[in-house]
Simulated scan of single mutants.
Amino acid sequence: MDSQDLQVLAALRRWAADGHRAALVTVARTWGSAPRPAGAWMALRDDGRVQGSVSGGCIEDDLVARMLDGRIAGSRPFVLTYGVTRDEAARFGLPCGGTLELVVEPAPDMARLADLAARIEAGQLVRRDVDIDTSTVAVADACRGEALGWDGRRLSTIHGPRWRLLIIGASQIGRYLAPMAQALDYAVSVCDPREEYSAEWDVPGAPLVPGMPDDVVTAMLPDPHTAIVALTHDPKLDDMALLEALKSPAFYVGALGSRVNNATRRARLLEYFDLSEGEVERLRGPIGLPIGSRTPPEIAVSILAEMTAVKNGAAVIRPEPATPASAGCGLG
């Protein structure tokens, strides 16, 4: 599945090929409870057609009106601000007095956008710089950990797979998890030394990395933008990956298995491996949010939901396991 950035880029290039003029709008800065984060993109065609979003809808309607009546024209980028006053925030549906500052490019360079799309599709992390004063746009390699920058005149946005996910186990769950994660701008790779599983792995854009799980984890140099999930259900493989993952700064480390299996795994990691109690406590297991998932796609959704919650700093509360007396009706 294409990321949101690629969807916007594809629309801009497709519209240009069809003879339409189109603008690119970027959320440069937000205050309060803005509905879309800084860096969000929207493409706007000369007839009002839209791809992407910068708010919940009302600002898009105003931008469409500006495009149709000629207020978005020319070639020089400019800044638009919404929600400065309480009345304006209410008018545009911005909650809690939220404010959006947008950079509008009425005529983005399609050749540079094609270069940007090619780099993203190749799995590269890219920085795009827009200078309001000189109307220049530059595209260059970005470093992992770089963030959006905006000083009121120069906008730098980061595009491409800003997060990484290593899946241990070329399982059916992984086949659903990989494309879901790619849609959220994860660069996904898979490790499974078991030929009976790895031979059938064919998820586009999610390469199979050869080697044993612990070696693969060590070689990828996990950072705070890395998630590692162990899905083989084979302790000989999962434990090897977890041994290295739990010692790394990866923001998320999880393993498939029941509460009992994960309790046994934690005890095993403490007893037989060089891991501290704090490092073992980082293990997410049972993996995923407790949403009653049973099928592989449901489990993949629950894993990605928990990864998203952890990444965004949201509280993850797990219910206590039901006791036999309260597990259901008619049990005693």
Rank of each mutant, 00 (worst) to 15 (best):
Trp41Glu: 07
Leu63Val: 04
Asp115Tyr: 01
Pro290Ser: 11
Asp141Cys: 11
Ser135Pro: 04
Leu68Phe: 02
Val130Cys: 03
Trp201Asn: 00
Cys191Leu: 08
Val54Thr: 03
Arg294Gln: 13
Met110Asn: 08
Gly149Lys: 05
Val316Asp: 11
Ser55Trp: 08
Ala309Phe: 13
Ala227Met: 05
Arg318Met: 12
Leu100Asn: 01
Val126Arg: 00
Ala267Asn: 12
Pro204His: 13
Ala314Gln: 15
Arg86Glu: 15
Glu277Phe: 06
Gln182Asp: 08
Ile291Glu: 14
Val137Asp: 05
Val203Gln: 09
Asp133Met: 13
Ala10Leu: 01
Leu12Gln: 03
Arg318Phe: 12
Ala314Lys: 14
Ala300Met: 08
Ala305Val: 09
Ala206Leu: 09
Ile120Asn: 02
Gly257Cys: 03
Lys247Ile: 02
Thr308Phe: 08
Ile132Glu: 05
Arg164Asn: 07
Val260Arg: 15
Ser302Arg: 00
Ala206Thr: 00
Ala28His: 05
Ala118Ser: 10
Asn312Pro: 05
Leu283Arg: 02
Ser293Asp: 10
Asp192His: 04
Thr226Tyr: 12
Ser53His: 11
Tyr186Lys: 01
Val280Leu: 11
Leu100Gly: 01
Leu331Lys: 10
Val260Leu: 11
Pro179Glu: 13
Arg162Tyr: 07
Leu113Pro: 06
Val8Gln: 08
Leu270Pro: 09
Ala38Phe: 04
Ala65Met: 10
Gly205Asp: 10
Met1Ser: 14
Ala10Ile: 00
Gly57Ser: 15
Arg265Met: 06
Asp141Tyr: 00
Cys191Ile: 11
Pro296Ala: 06
Met42Tyr: 06
Ala43Thr: 00
Arg128Thr: 13
His159Arg: 09
Leu221Thr: 15
Ile158Asp: 07
Gly169Glu: 05
Gly288Val: 01
Cys329Val: 00
Pro286Leu: 05
Leu116Gly: 02
Asp87Leu: 13
Pro319Asn: 08
Pro321Glu: 07
Pro324Met: 10
Val130Lys: 05
Leu331Ser: 13
Val50Ile: 15
Leu94Glu: 02
Glu105His: 07
Ala183Ile: 04
Glu195His: 12
Cys58Glu: 13
Leu6Lys: 00
Asp69His: 10
Ile173Lys: 00
Ala267Leu: 13
Leu177Tyr: 05
Pro290Cys: 06
Asp192Ser: 13
Glu271Asn: 14
Val50Phe: 08
Leu125Asp: 14
Val229Trp: 01
Ala28Lys: 01
Ala314Ile: 04
Gly93Val: 04
Leu155Glu: 03
Arg282Ala: 04
Leu166Phe: 10
Thr264Met: 12
Ile120Asp: 02
Leu68Ala: 13
Lys311Gln: 15
Ala65Thr: 09
Val301Thr: 13
Ala107Arg: 11
Ala178Tyr: 03
Ser276Pro: 06
Ala227Gly: 14
Thr136Tyr: 07
Arg36Ala: 11
Gly39Tyr: 05
Met42Thr: 02
